[in-house]
């Protein structure tokens, strides 16, 4: 009975939240005398689908490359050779301290042109990965620092080689700690990829801009664009929550 009433309360709350939010947007639209009309978007469904796929491709490719860059930067920060360590720290600070838009222009038009990176897809993935890699480096560094040093001494004491220590001890301990944060970062990559539109990569945002130049339905187009991004990030956040629960299950001290 009690379970039933809490469930009912939850449903009512969800409905209320939806009514409040939709109502607010509705009233706002009435105040500016705009009637939403999504019907024109149907004609662009194929291009939108192409853009949706391109966004996913850019995000997935960047996820893998940024994981690599992030791992290298995290380890390099601890390097005994100071030049390497400073370089890694400088990279993380500068990237995290400047806007992605500035980085895209800088790397694409100056560095990319100078070194002959002509393929804008490759350039896009590299730039996005360089940006996200700095954040991932910090996640990994934090994860490594949170592991009790004695776990490594333990591995030594039972006679594991350094390679096996990494595979059997360091890696699983690190993953348990950083997986939730990494999946969260993946949601950021998806959103940040929208800025790649400035170098004309035909991903969702770029496609939406092109459609807008065609049908002049700016509000509807961007409204729908936001919805599509939300579908992607919400999926990732659901996965994150599941991973977090698993992580808690194995590490709660009760």
């Amino acid at each position: 009975m009690k379970k039933y009433t809490t469930c009912l309360k939850q449903i009512i709350s969800v409905v209320l939240v939806v009514i409040i939010l939709v109502g607010f947007v509705w009233i706002s639209l009435l105040r500016i005398n705009h009637r939403l009309d999504f019907t024109t978007l149907w004609g662009y469904r194929y291009r939108l689908w192409q853009g949706f796929k391109m966004t996913l491709i850019m995000a997935f490719a960047s996820l893998f490359v940024s994981l690599f860059i992030g791992s290298v930067a995290a380890v390099a920060q601890k390097a005994k050779f100071l030049t390497v360590s400073y370089l890694a720290k400088f990279y993380v600070q500068v990237i995290r301290g400047t806007p992605l838009l500035v980085q895209i222009f800088f790397f694409f038009y100056i560095i990319g042109t100078a070194w002959g990176v002509d393929n804008r897809y490759v350039a896009g993935v590299l730039i996005l990965s360089l940006f996200e890699g700095a954040y991932i480096a910090e996640i990994i560094r934090g994860g490594l620092e949170s592991i009790d040093r004695q776990q490594f001494e333990l591995a030594k004491a039972v006679g594991l080689t350094p390679a096996k220590t990494f595979r059997l001890v360091t890696f699983p301990l690190l993953m348990a700690r950083i997986l939730p944060a990494l999946t969260g970062q993946f949601a950021s990559i998806i959103k940040d990829s929208s800025l790649l539109s400035v170098i004309a990569i035909p991903e969702l945002t770029q496609i939406t801009q092109e459609i807008s130049a065609d049908n002049y339905r700016l509000f509807e187009n961007y409204f729908f664009l936001g919805l599509l991004y939300f579908v992607m990030t919400f999926t990732v956040s659901l996965i994150t929550r599941r991973l977090e629960r698993k992580y808690k299950h194995e590490n709660s001290s009760e």
């Binding site: 776990q151 333990l154 039972v158 006679g159 059997l168 699983p172």
Partner: peptide, 30 residues
């Protein structure tokens, strides 16, 4: 080290492995 046993003061088990796995890991990998 493989011929010497070492018991630590506290927290001497691999925290991501079960008790049995803790005992089996060095037998298999060392």
């Amino acid at each position: 080290r493989r011929t010497i046993g070492f018991v630590f003061q506290t927290k001497g088990l691999f925290e991501h492995l079960t008790a049995l796995e803790n005992v089996m890991l060095p037998l298999i990998h060392s």
